[in-house]
Amino acid sequence: MRKGGGVQIRGLRELGIIVFIIIISILVGIRNPRFLTWGNLHDMLLDTAVLSVVAVGMMFVLVTGGIDLSAESVLALTGMVAGIIIKDNPYLSPVFMLLFGLLFGGFLGAVTGLIVAKGRVLPIIATLSMMYIYRGITFIVSRGEWIDAHEMPESFKALATGRVLGFSNLIAIALGVYLLFYYFANHTRTGREIYAVGSNLEAARIIGINTDWVIWLVYTLSGALSGLGGVMWVARYASAQNDTAAGFVLTVVAACVLGGVSISGGAGTIPGVFLGAITIGIINNALPMIRVSPFWRMALQGLIILVAALVNVAVARNVERAQLRQREELRMVRHGA
């Protein structure tokens, strides 16, 4: 029932952010023409790759009405452990390391998921605790030291510098994650159940969805993708540090919210997350290129995010109004508020 109209509406919903991306690209392009070159576009996508991967995981958690603050620590811990492993076993294949990132991160996420789903601890508290615990473990396993570029084999660093079909490997991985999870979110039973749990937990339970399992699953997914992001991060910067990605989780949540994911749960799409991540990527990439004082840039960064959010809200509201006229769906009223 929702699907027919859904596609069309979703297209409209994301119009705001697309318009915003085009406007900001033109403005920056006028100031520095190099911004719109293929090389820079590629750099920008590359910068967005890790953010994208982690944001996809975060989206599923947000859709259930939760939040995963531990994502940045899972990223750091997995990155550090991967760094230590590759330092001691330089012959390991990078593909194996990516798989390791998924599994190790997934395990860390599964622990968090158990605490939320079975322990009934509020997601923000549970994941905040795990954020500190995993960050602490990062220090413990590394003994406070870091893994440097010269301790990593070329094959591992090539993960970030190598290319497939003209795109950096990392971009290819991010695209793969988007495609896979687009399918998962829209065309699998479990994917749809995640939205059902986020829209109305009680109703979902009554119709027979195993809500605990779904909630555990989204944290596990978020962990797995953060772990994957951790391995990508370490390969990209050729350095595993204890404070890797500190504060990164705010950027991830911002990318999701800019992409129309609702903090209160129930709503969020993969294309939206993609656009949100791109918006953040553009801001990070464009600001160093426009030759304004670094002191202004910080304020400018906030301003741009704010404008993007406002444009987004305005467009979404119009869409919803039109929709309300079409059919009076209660759920939509909640999001308009």
């Binding site: 520095n32 991060w233 910067y237 890797t244 990070n284 160093p288 670094p294």
Partner: peptide, 25 residues
């Protein structure tokens, strides 16, 4: 030509360096 700040963050410092190459060819 410029003084930029990477805040001692690896990703931000990296981006700032890339930005320098592009802003000042």
């Amino acid at each position: 030509a410029a003084i930029v700040y990477g805040d001692d963050l690896r990703d931000k410092s990296y981006n700032e360096a890339m930005g320098l190459f592009k802003s000042y060819p």
